[in-house]
Design a protein around this nucleic acid. Structure first.
Lengths: 248, 248
DNA sequence: ACGCTCGTGCGTATGTTATACCCAGAAGTA
DNA sequence: TACTTCTGGGTATAACATACGCACGAGCGT
């Protein structure tokens, strides 16, 4: 342990590669453990990820994992970082809006492909390397704009919040669909019907109107329509701010 | 239940002793169980909520809870709904923007006061009565606008997503602060310092710029500045859309 | 060659958890 | 009175995270 790691949570040291073991190639490596965890989560869901299960995946004993990882939570954080991976390159030549849009879509796609990621309970601000790489992606998209740094930071948080909440919602719907053995559309319809049955229009007039409008029974014209709508509105607002600063 | 209690907030019925039926009614009620769960979560955090602990709180046996609740997850969902409670009344006379803003602020305040709520892993679309009530609140704020129903729904989801992600982030920061025995500001500074130490500016230029700008060491002028910024941008965009439809 | 230490994996043991299953008394009903 | 139903409880099980100490092998200094 060098002085650099002093007081640093061990997850970080592990993730940022500050814990390289000089050994040649033991059977059990941090990378292999994390990869096994990701595999279990991808195939059987986050709830299937237990230390025992991950160890079995590697043909190792449960307790052996603790040589490389101090707690299960640490393993989970490392798994998330591994699953998140490197962000794609910024689309060249596009303005800030194109950049933020592809940031959002890429992030959403990632969470779609690995739905277990959003289920991992996080209890610290983002600090893992690949999370920072994504943050850099988003911030870089705003390079050259008149936005202040704190505004850029806020923007990143808002956009990823929008992405995360949408990803969570659609993951919930998909999970419910899978659990019921129906398609996603059927599940959405089912939600609408349930709402119609439960939400008394007298007590919830606005919800009643929503249900009566039938939008819950109408599939989106394009997938992620709602997400795109929200994102576009936010970016519109940001654009207005930028323009108002550029032409006072 | 006599007719006197009809429509009366259950808090009042309980507080005025209208529900005291000593010796008669069962000791264990769904309401009492849920309330005990909320109490445990509020005092000792979500992780302290176990069936055993909640039962102990009531002087009952662990398994007795299962007469009223089929799984722990169900209890958690009920706890969330109870903690969420009824939304405040819509500010009268305000436009849609004032309505959505107070929706967002009220929701944020709620999640601030009961930080455990956002930690509860949800795996189904919102369907509990109080969640629907909040949804109605948000939708009602947009009553009379030119927005389509699906756009209103999308708006609600976006706004609550913004609120939730901001609440989660600040809860994380506060939790980290409390764990380290420092103030929230110190914790934020610590985050900035950690970022500065870990994120190589060569590898993450935009993050480097951010760190160099010092915003992470500068406390917000007002609390929730970043949140308000994001919300305002989104609402600006929505306003632009509404205006463009009203004056074609 | 010989101990010594350290790195690495393992097995056992403990405490916590959710929850299945069955028993006992009480209360209402035929 | 007999019977069923309702409510609470106790016991048992299985999964889980993880503390702790043992065992084995590699390098290293003597």
């Amino acid at each position: 342990m060098s002085e650099y790691e002093e007081g640093m949570p061990s997850v970080l040291a592990a993730a940022w590669g500050l814990r390289e073991r000089p050994g040649k190639g033991p059977r059990l490596t941090l990378e292999r453990i994390v990869a096994a965890g990701v595999k279990v989560a991808a195939t059987d869901g986050l709830s299937a990820v237990s230390m025992g299960r991950v160890a079995r995946e590697l043909g190792a004993a449960t307790m052996s994992l603790y040589r490389h990882v101090t707690t299960k939570d640490e393993l989970l954080e490392l798994m998330v970082d591994a699953a998140v991976g490197q962000p794609p390159p910024l689309p060249p030549g596009g303005g800030w809006r194109a950049g933020l849009t592809s940031f959002a879509r890429a992030y959403l796609g990632l969470l779609r492909r690995q739905p277990w990621v959003i289920r991992v309970p996080l209890n610290s601000p983002p600090i893992m390397p690949n999370q920072i790489a994504w943050m850099d992606y988003g911030l870089a998209a705003m390079g050259g704009t008149v936005l202040r740094q704190d505004e850029r930071l806020s923007t990143i948080m808002i956009v990823s919040g929008i992405v995360r909440s949408w990803a969570l919602l659609s993951a919930d719907i998909n999970a419910a669909a899978q659990a019921g053995g129906v398609t996603t559309e059927q599940s959405t319809f089912g939600y609408g019907r349930l709402l119609k049955r439960l939400a008394d229009p007298a007590r919830f007039p606005a919800v009643g109107e929503l249900v009566a409008s039938g939008v819950l029974e109408t599939p989106d014209a394009a997938p992620d329509d709602d997400f795109e709508f929200g994102l576009a509105r936010f970016l519109d607002g940001l654009e207005a701010l930028i323009r108002s600063r550029e032409t006072p």
